[in-house]
């Protein structure tokens, strides 16, 4: 009996937090999505969302997030694989993680310099003989910088999965005559799929919603769902529309999480 009151006392601040900062904000976002810019209750925002402009933007946002996730994966998997084979692997892993602790904006700022008209990238292109060109404020620079920022987050879960892999499975595969590629395709990759999935989760969803990168690097050429939300809330001051886009982003997020975790049970 006494324990129960003790427990409730413990849970009080935490429960308050759940109610005020987890449940209430979600409900408020959904509630606000039903109000148009004049504060009238309507479904205008939803109607607007299903027009060509917004659907196009959502598709674009998806496409960029997809590109960023796939490229990060293609770079991160071999890196993680090689890392697990090095001698001081924990130290090397730490060195991979350190850049992710540097403030994201500073890294983006560095690329403003590197991709600038007279920056290092263009100097390199001149030297190679291709000649300088506009790099900043292009789709390329956006994808490049986003991949740069997300790579450590993709490497980490894949590294952990690879590190847990029992080496005797690989010996068994090679004893049974599997080639290196077959071993990878039939043994290593399926067993590290969980790591790949959580890597994709931590990259894909932020890639849909990053807005500072599109502003700083892509110069408003790329508009992601995140950029659109920021625009509606802080520039246009149309909170209803912003909330509507947020509702769709939440739905997409939940869908993506469900997709990547249902399969996990199947494996």
């Amino acid at each position: 009996m006494q324990n129960k009151t003790f427990r409730h006392l413990f849970m009080l601040p935490y429960a308050l937090w759940i109610i005020l900062f987890v449940i209430a904000p979600i409900l408020l976002v959904v509630y606000f999505s039903f109000f148009d810019i004049h504060g009238n209750f309507s479904l205008t925002n939803y109607k607007n969302f299903f027009t060509a402009t917004y659907l196009q933007m959502t598709l674009n946002s998806f496409w960029y997030a997809f590109l960023i996730t796939v490229i990060s994966l293609l770079v991160a998997y071999p890196t993680a694989y090689i890392l697990t084979r090095t001698r001081h692997k924990q130290l090397w892993l730490l060195l991979i993680i350190v850049p992710s602790w540097i403030n994201l904006l500073l890294k983006a700022y560095a690329f403003i310099g590197i991709f600038g008209t007279h920056g290092a990238a263009n100097q390199f292109l001149e030297w190679v003989g291709i000649g300088s060109r506009q790099l900043l404020f292009t789709d390329f620079s956006f994808v490049f910088v986003a991949v740069y920022i997300f790579i450590p987050f993709m490497i980490l879960p894949i590294f952990n999965a690879l590190d847990k892999l029992n080496p005797s499975l690989l010996y068994a595969a090679s004893d049974l005559g599997a080639s290196k590629w077959t071993t990878f395709r039939r043994v290593i990759f399926p067993l590290t799929l969980d790591g790949v999935k959580s890597g994709c989760q931590v990259v894909f969803i932020p890639a849909l919603s990053l807005f500072m990168l599109t502003r700083l690097i892509a110069g408003n050429r790329v508009i992601t769902l995140g950029t659109a939300i920021e625009q509606q809330f802080l520039v246009t001051q149309n909170w209803g529309m912003g909330a509507t886009i947020a509702v769709f982003l939440i739905i997409i997020m939940v869908g993506f999480m469900a997709l990547t975790s249902i399969r996990r049970r199947g494996v």
Partner: peptide, 15 residues
């Protein structure tokens, strides 16, 4: 933890 920052920011702004 899983919500994108933009959504946390926007919903807290409303809150």
């Amino acid at each position: 933890i899983v919500s994108p920052d933009v959504i946390i920011g926007a919903s807290f702004l409303i809150l």
